[in-house]
Simulated assay, not measured.
Amino acid sequence: MIGMYDFHCHSTLSDGDMLPIEMIRRMSVLGYSTVAISDHVDATNLSDVTGAVNRLKQSASLFGVRLLCGVEITHVPPEEIHSIAREAKELGADIVLVHGETVVEPVAPGTNRAAVSCKDVDILAHPGLISREDAQTAAENGVYLEITSRNGHNRTNGHVVRTGRECGCELIVQSDAHEPRDLLDREARWLVARGAGLTEDEALRVLSPERSLFHRF
């Protein structure tokens, strides 16, 4: 059976409950083949987080998991997102997420726009009530919009799907896991996708690991 992916998981390197290797082991048992640990970063911890995750890649491979070094740029002023995303890639991050304008946190207005306009950003996480203009920019620049299972952030999944579909955006289903119970098995991933409003065919495509985002790594 083809393994699963999740590029949005948090460990003890930021506000998660699991050591990075514990997360990898648990996800291996659930059937994941490609995982990114994408802890919260700003200018103060970017170097430490990328260095730590990259040191774990060999250990992850022994559990049959391809580990990607991710970061989630979080609550950073929109004007600084471009430079921090560029620095993250230079420090060895394989994948860069930006903590989008979720409706349950005071994310600075303009964060979504800065993220989707940045060539070094791969995923806009929980983008809230993303505007059509920003979704169109995401589509043009190949920035994926996240459908999330995270409580609170998931309130706008339906809007993200509708707007993303209208604008031709790539969508991605992720857990934003912080503790073991947040990790999704195969059935839960399917329910998140379908519950957000994806058709069966759309859900199958979005959940497949053989997608264009993987070609970046």
Rank of each mutant, 00 (worst) to 15 (best):
Leu97Ile: 06
Trp190Asp: 09
Leu145Ala: 08
Gly92Ala: 10
Leu62Ala: 12
Thr137Tyr: 00
Pro209Gln: 08
Gly152Ile: 00
Lys57Glu: 12
Asp15Ser: 10
Tyr32Gln: 07
Asn54Trp: 03
Ala139Gly: 08
Ser47Ile: 01
Thr44Leu: 05
Cys69Gln: 00
Leu124Asn: 07
His8Cys: 11
Val35Lys: 01
Thr102Pro: 04
Thr163His: 04
Gly16Glu: 01
Asp120Ser: 13
Arg55Ser: 15
Val35Ile: 15
Asn141Asp: 09
His10Tyr: 12
Gly51Leu: 10
Leu204Glu: 14
Met4Ser: 06
Leu124Phe: 06
Pro109Glu: 12
Ser208Pro: 14
Asp15Lys: 09
Gly158Cys: 07
Ala36Glu: 02
Val160Glu: 02
Phe63His: 14
Glu80Asp: 14
Gly110Met: 09
Thr111Trp: 07
Thr12Glu: 09
Val116Tyr: 00
Asn45Gln: 06
Cys9Arg: 00
Ile73His: 05
Ala115Leu: 06
Asn157Trp: 00
Ile84Val: 13
Ile123Phe: 04
Arg132Gln: 13
Gly31Ala: 10
Gly168Asn: 03
Arg181Cys: 08
Asp39Ile: 06
Asn141Trp: 02
Gly197Ile: 12
Ser11Cys: 05
Ala196Met: 08
Thr156Val: 12
Arg205Ile: 12
Gln58Pro: 06
Gly168Phe: 04
Asp182Gln: 02
Ser83Trp: 03
Cys169Ala: 09
Val41Tyr: 01
Gly100Asn: 02
Glu101Phe: 04
Thr163Gly: 07
His153Ala: 10
Val103Gln: 11
Ser149Thr: 05
Asp201His: 05
Val161Leu: 10
Ser83Cys: 07
Gly70Asp: 07
Val104Leu: 04
Pro77Thr: 11
His153Trp: 02
Gly31Met: 13
Ala125Phe: 04
Thr34Pro: 07
Asn45Lys: 13
Leu67Ile: 10
Pro127Tyr: 02
Leu62Cys: 07
